[in-house]
Amino acid sequence: MYPLKVENLSFAWGSKITIDDVTFSIETGTVTSILGPNGSGKTTLLKLMLGFLSPVSGRVMLGEHDLATLDLAMRAKKMAYVPQRHTAVFSYRVLDIVVLGRIPYSNVFCRITDNDYQIASECLTQLGIGHLAERSYTEISGGEQQLVLIARALVQQAEILIMDEPVSGLDYGNQLMLLKQLRRLAQNGITCVKTTHYPEHALWTSDRAIFVRAGKIIATGNSADIINSSTLKDLYNADIRILESEAGSQKMRTCVPVFD
């Protein structure tokens, strides 16, 4: 079962083709990392998958439905977007931001009910940040802000979460905390797709990886299978070795650069 399929997708800014005939499928309950150098088309691909951009050709399938013909609210019930944490202009209460995830279920006046607030509180608790509910979004830390945006996506009760570089700008501890949360979400059956600049993170959290270079997919498959010295050399043009070491009860792989 593939909740999300990308079929022969192409996109161009003017005459410059930035996504070139891309095809892949995302499986239920997996974490997929989209890796690629700057300007490779990762973000464009993400925006196409979210329907923010319309493809020149090809299509995105959400289950049985073509994304292009799906009504916006229906789309939002199936797929949620976790943006890079933004510099908020207004200081909303955390709970009021999270409850916006109920908008796709609300009426024409965006009416939010007590039940919606209940769901929002539960999602905050589920992510271990229930204590932040009454705080102001602008006053909490970067890692907490990212979790709040994930909580909002969970409130949407969508089966797919699409995240744009969820760890960007977070300190190391918060990065690890976030990766752990992603693993938990996937274990609970939520399908996560994220772009990332860290092949290590793909090894630690994600089942699948997609390598994008110059708008084309150059490799796709299990992270552990496709992330190695030679593919990383291909992708980033850098010499990187993969080491494996014991960490607690598990074996973890790390990327080590070669500076010779």
Binding site: K47, L50, G51, F52, L72, A73, M74, R75, A76, K77, M79, A80, Y81, P83, H86, V89, F90, Y92, D96, I97, L100, G101, I103, P104, S106, F109, C110, R111, I112, Q156
Partner: peptide, 23 residues
């Protein structure tokens, strides 16, 4: 005032608002 709920969504930015199902 009746549309104030939309303003909360719109103030999140165009892409986020669209991802929340708002035109």
């Amino acid at each position: 005032i009746a549309m104030s709920g939309y303003l909360n969504v719109l103030s999140m930015g165009d892409e986020e608002a669209a991802s929340l199902g708002v035109n």
